[in-house]
Design a protein around this nucleic acid. Sequence first.
DNA 1: CTGCGTGAAATTATAGATAATTTTGCGACT
DNA 2: AGTCGCAAAATTATCTATAATTTCACGCAG
Lengths: 221, 221
Amino acid sequence: MASTGDTIAVRISKELADRIISGVIEPGSRLRQDHVAEEFNTSHVPVREAFRRLEAQGLAISEPRRGVRVASFDLGEVREVAEMRAALEVLALRHAAPHLTASILDQAEEATKAGDKSRNVRSWEEANRTFHRLILAPCNMPRLLSAIDDLHAASARFLFAAWRSEWETRTDQDHRAILSALRQGNTESAAATLGRHVQWIGQKPVKTASGKTRDAFAIVG
Amino acid sequence: MASTGDTIAVRISKELADRIISGVIEPGSRLRQDHVAEEFNTSHVPVREAFRRLEAQGLAISEPRRGVRVASFDLGEVREVAEMRAALEVLALRHAAPHLTASILDQAEEATKAGDKSRNVRSWEEANRTFHRLILAPCNMPRLLSAIDDLHAASARFLFAAWRSEWETRTDQDHRAILSALRQGNTESAAATLGRHVQWIGQKPVKTASGKTRDAFAIVG
DNA sequence: CTGCGTGAAATTATAGATAATTTTGCGACT
DNA sequence: AGTCGCAAAATTATCTATAATTTCACGCAG
């Protein structure tokens, strides 16, 4: 498994990140180091290090002496992340384009198809993430890619929050347009479409715990 | 002092970050937790947490069981950071522009003048950072601003590495052009200039420890 | 009934101790 | 001379213990 070789702190932070992103742990709820330590059968020292990693990813916020809680988010942050992704993914694509091969584009098309067939948020999100990663990775800019990864994690949080259980399949035209532009060597057109695609924010009525309905927002690309 | 209220880990990470950025600690050198702990009169637990923070900022890299070392960097990373800054600062400026007041622009002009008068890298860097922060902060996007801050820290590292001791004063025309465009309400022109400004990479021969001269590169904006 | 101490319980932050791994120095062997 | 291997030293990662702070419940006064 992937965890081998990782330090305990890394293992814990990955598991907690997954829970926060998927919404298993609610925004605002406290993360108590002793409880987490007990669950993972460790002491609290590696747990604290895991908290620092989550903090850096923007998934948790820590107030000195008062503990760590899951970061909450609002429409403003959804927009913010969408715009940052647009800026950075467009940059990455411009650098990646010259290094894209037919094989990579074929894999990206497969990922798009897998997304269209997905019957739940989780598998759609994974396919979507695969698509973006495939076409951006060849830019060979590690720092940029890691920043984009963190933003994807944030995006996925918003996504899961809006489409908690239900999910309607739909075909992703943007991905196809991007691939087609890339195949024709039209980098600028691909970049422009990607920029728009990532900034599109879906909107959908959702039942809250109190029974009311409110509009939920989520990045869709 | 600013450290009050901070946890020890934060204090240590700030101090180490400053040393790494200013070049007091060399790229590639090891950070040994017990040594640092002793210097700060603490145990190694907060030191480890400080290391995680440095890791997240890209100032240190940690290999499990093998310790932490100061991140090294090359021309590729200098370029990468410059391009990321260009993308994100332009985004921030577009959002900040509508909220800029005459008072803020006056302060930014002061910062520019202070930069022109600076007789060493350190004070120039501070003035420059102040300028950028002043015109970008009103965008009200905390995540974006914090990402830009981290990139500024990386930039400063490159800057200090190239101009370790000597420094020649020069007047910053770009800053003035940006301010003038903003005063006229011409956001797009200001953004375009900022984007170019930040990507400009200075180049300068420098003596290495072995006596040879090589070209050093550094972000200048 | 509401607001405000007060003290117990929970929790965080740090210190000190231990186990496991890596690095290093040195000597034997080729 | 070079290198291989082993043991000692250094270092990392984790655990256990302690001090300090915060939270929470409860009772009392206004």
